[in-house]
Design a protein around this nucleic acid. Sequence first.
DNA 1: CTGAAAGCGCTTACAG
DNA 2: CTGAAAGCGCTTACAG
Lengths: 349, 349
Amino acid sequence: MAQKVKLSTIADALGLSTATVSLALRDSPLVAEVTRERIKEEARASGYIYNRRAASLRTSKSGIVGVCVHDIMNPFFGEILQSIENELDRHRQTFILCNHYDELSKQRAFVDTMLQLGADGLIMSPSIGTPAADIRLAEDNDLPCVLIARTVEGAGVTSFRGDDSYGMSLAVEHLIARGHRRIAMIGGTELTSTGRDREKGYLNALAGAGIEFRPEWRVTGPRSRHSGFDATPQFLAIPDRPTAACCFSDLVALGFMYGLSRAGLRPGIDIAVTGYDDIDEAAIAMPPLTTVANGQSEVGRRAAAALLARLQGAPAVDRVELITPELKIRQSCDFLWPTGRQPSAMEPA
Amino acid sequence: MAQKVKLSTIADALGLSTATVSLALRDSPLVAEVTRERIKEEARASGYIYNRRAASLRTSKSGIVGVCVHDIMNPFFGEILQSIENELDRHRQTFILCNHYDELSKQRAFVDTMLQLGADGLIMSPSIGTPAADIRLAEDNDLPCVLIARTVEGAGVTSFRGDDSYGMSLAVEHLIARGHRRIAMIGGTELTSTGRDREKGYLNALAGAGIEFRPEWRVTGPRSRHSGFDATPQFLAIPDRPTAACCFSDLVALGFMYGLSRAGLRPGIDIAVTGYDDIDEAAIAMPPLTTVANGQSEVGRRAAAALLARLQGAPAVDRVELITPELKIRQSCDFLWPTGRQPSAMEPA
DNA sequence: CTGAAAGCGCTTACAG
DNA sequence: CTGAAAGCGCTTACAG
């Protein structure tokens, strides 16, 4: 390329002013149809590239929405992200993605960048340890925020997520209804609202059935497939071994089932297992995973819509919007292997 | 917040010029130590936010590197992205991520945005159907590109990827060495260099062992876990059924193994299976997946390093840098189930 | 060591 | 319907 072409290049070539060119390129009816077409043609022919920094500096709108989550690779977020992206696309907002891996420093670097770039809004699944002040800092600097999946107390913004406590109780009640009395819960942490709420649901369901919870049933920590796998030995070592395990997420359940198989146990037969999220894989897994649909695309859609409303000037509202989860019964709590042989789930391993 | 604070706000408060403030904030030795500290303190106290658009407009450097791949949720890319991010972080470049889902229009929108934002560079796994001209457009507008995972002929830039043909031949030769003569290949498409090269490796290995390829062995298409699962019936319907399948990727293999189990067949026993990529899950899967390590973190690291060199002024070079893959033998080609029972892989289903 | 001034490429009142 | 001019918030020579 010879010289960078800018508005004035086009204006000069056509004997017009930059004002007219600027207006025409943005389809302003103020510019005569013919002029507009000549301008667009010239822009195309000269390889003009719109300088968004300059425009944004002038207008203080950037057309950018930042989206930041802790685990981009988790299919749970995949679905949320896709529905956010759809919604944003339709409003011609550019979607900028970030994976903070639950590292506060990474999240802060991203929020800073968004601030410096003059992003119009932010959607995030807040990192473990996010202080409310971090959210308020963004809000105070004209960067409207909407939260997904997790809640930050006192942040003063809306967060969209599934009703984790209710959802987990659905899974545990299902297990209880199938005759299980010793039920472990694998994964999740006190450090997130998700972990706390799902544990609450587990405990509530147990209490509701008059089952006395034993602390050794609670295996905290795992939030990924691999750590679900790694938790298996700890589960197997629980005295008076539970016959069932409700897992923090599908990923944890899937890894845990691998671990069970590795130990010579048959998930769904020797040990009943439930997941959480109902990711795509749950339905094709072996055994197909009984889980809780978490409404991810609704979370994404509504979060994006809420942010878009904020961009139009709607005020921040301090509220959590709960999406009602739904139990998906498949076969991981009572599985008939294709060979035709089906021992009872209660049969000792 | 009352008023937006900018350089001049700080300058006025301290009785200095914006030039001095600007210099001080960027740690210029031109500014006296004491002055610098006073300025930084004032910036902190007043909640100053650096306006990157303004700076970037002035300097025509943005500190942004765009990264665009077709499947962010694939752990294969997860590892690449993480190593790119590490490398970029160390050079204080902001990493902006995009998932183009193999849709050319999404990729184009992203490249456009990067151009308009004045990004410094671009790393991408080009979408199916990317014309070389798309890459050249970016390069011609001062946006240096480096490709990963896939190659675009004639683009004139460097691409980093595994030696797919060699890698696949490793997997197939392993199968052949274990006695298999009827070997299917599941997944991948002619539309990407990856698909073409892996198929080439499969065909070469067959030919090298004097095995005559039969067209019905080639099940094209699947590139995800779910489509690998869905391909199972087609595989099972192949006349004179193959005893083994080499899969296009680990994800395809994992889905295919689910499909096999669903059909009452035992992966690793009734049908030998290989994957490709060696994602984290391969080692914990049941059966543990024999696969080909594809050097993803090296791909990421080297691609980032190459881009960084371009940002320093290194010229574009038209070359493909092949990372040598490595066979990882686990048990999916010869599996001993924990129950102790181990039928031959050749035994009819 | 610090300051005054120009300029990056847009858009937006304001005139005409 | 079109143009002249100011200004968004920085940084960079250039002076002093």
